[in-house]
Design a protein around this nucleic acid. Sequence first.
DNA 1: TTGTAAGCGTTATCAA
DNA 2: TTGATAACGCTTACAA
Lengths: 326, 326
Amino acid sequence: MATRLIDIAEKAGVSLTTASHVMRGYTKSKIKLETTDHDLKVADEHGYRPNAIARSLKIQRINTIGLYTGYGYHSLRDPFLAEVYTGIQRVCSDLHYDFLVHVDIEGKEPSEIRLRLNDGKVAGLIVHAQSGDAVVAELARIRMPAVAIADRQSVLPSVIADDADGMRQLADYLWSRGHRHIAYLTSHLKLASIEARSETITQLMAERGGRCTVLPFPQLHPAEFLAQLMESEDRPTALCCWNDYYAYQMVRVGMDLGLRIPEEIAVVGFDGLLDTLLPARKLVTVGVPWEDMAAEASKMLLRLLDGETLPLVTTFPVTLIAGDTA
Amino acid sequence: MATRLIDIAEKAGVSLTTASHVMRGYTKSKIKLETTDHDLKVADEHGYRPNAIARSLKIQRINTIGLYTGYGYHSLRDPFLAEVYTGIQRVCSDLHYDFLVHVDIEGKEPSEIRLRLNDGKVAGLIVHAQSGDAVVAELARIRMPAVAIADRQSVLPSVIADDADGMRQLADYLWSRGHRHIAYLTSHLKLASIEARSETITQLMAERGGRCTVLPFPQLHPAEFLAQLMESEDRPTALCCWNDYYAYQMVRVGMDLGLRIPEEIAVVGFDGLLDTLLPARKLVTVGVPWEDMAAEASKMLLRLLDGETLPLVTTFPVTLIAGDTA
DNA sequence: TTGTAAGCGTTATCAA
DNA sequence: TTGATAACGCTTACAA
């Protein structure tokens, strides 16, 4: 049981109110400097910190914001989300907020999910979801403070990229290099940005007398897809991919097929997220199951909360991964 | 103002207690099925959800865990942390916990930081910090439930990799390929794993009559460093790097210098995190300032909490990034 | 300058 | 089977 304000007050020999005033640096009512100093000292000795929960309940505010994404738990291996997290954290850090990753929301009905998001743990949400996400509609209905990022939500203030302009720049670039027939590789996700991008480029190419074929990105057999595409009579000369990840996959598949890029097939992406730090070499290294370890640590933490005693050290095995750099 | 339990009770024409029992599915006291059904219906209509804050205050528990890392805000571009986050989320999702990323802790004294971590917002913490981190000591002192991950903390249950065995495997591998003098590129961070790794490999090489020189990783001028190293008379034939990120940097620098890898210089890492999806090509793409956008969205959210009215759409400019794939 | 007391929305004890 | 009522730890009128 952590020390409470009343404990501090008692130890310091003052009332609860006085202690509270001192802790909050209340200036209106002038408290004796002596009292103040003494109180603070006592609080410090006991490592006292006001309980944020009780405080939130009283003042009806909480300095925590959350993130809702349509997907279950967020894969931070997705460089896009990593950027989003980093941005949120930067601001939270500056403005003294904490950042709650809502994860207890999986496999539920939309209405139930929004209930979970609205249980008072966060003051508001950053939202990244597909168009027509039912949860987002619910959130808007109950006027939960929320801002959409990257993919526009009609019912929320949205922070988006200038997708159309980006596509125009790409179209200009490709056109000036002589491309008259391109393919746009889209995603199965119903994201506003994807629609904006594919529509814009299709229209731009058509306006100029060229054309753009919209195709779903071949998740399962990218190599077969590209091989077939290259053999087709009326084939596109450039692949315009929804994002960098898709694009790099196409580049790799192209290289595997022995295609010269960009001479035989040009590839462009969208995002500017993935850099080229990693050469096309396979590193000799030691594989560590970091994710499993973090999972195990979390489980242990919860068991700890249950009063269980845990071993001081839990060691996971690691494995050498062969490569070509050594 | 969200609906409270008492509102539901009034609407349903029952007492607060009854409503509470119904909501919690309390079975001991048998409530008329009619009452139950009616109450639930009313609650549903109003989109009622028990306030987690009030609930936490009352039951003195909270189903949220946090993460403390020694560095300011966590860079999620660090693939290691991405794995950690993902692992934590996976477990939280399974066990109905939420995950709080503490960010309001920067630039404070250790004792103050641990106070912030101990304000009741989280039930416990996952910890990743350097050896001798004062905050960790404080956390242990006040018996805050915590589990360390990846880098052992003497005062906490720790989940770590078998660093020594990993290094043994690497040493065996390098030794069998004829390497007798290697360099270990270490970090400035005082992490337990680093110490364990460098000590182990140094000792293993020495035992066999070879040797290992421990050098700080050249953050600023990796190219100059490698060039000089290659020219030195008694140069190592292999670079053993603290992690994959360091290793890939060395590989790239090596390729830039025209070195044959592994013939002229072998490179090994540790982690198994970075894959080789990305070829050493520079993509033509459109750069989007995702992080800034997320930051802006967060700021907007907070302004929204202040009652401010925001524009429905905020658009950021994007820029074409030249490359060699198109 | 300090103290008393009400109340934030729950849960839980104890009567009715 | 249901209903008062007292906490949980804090903030804040208002009173002394």
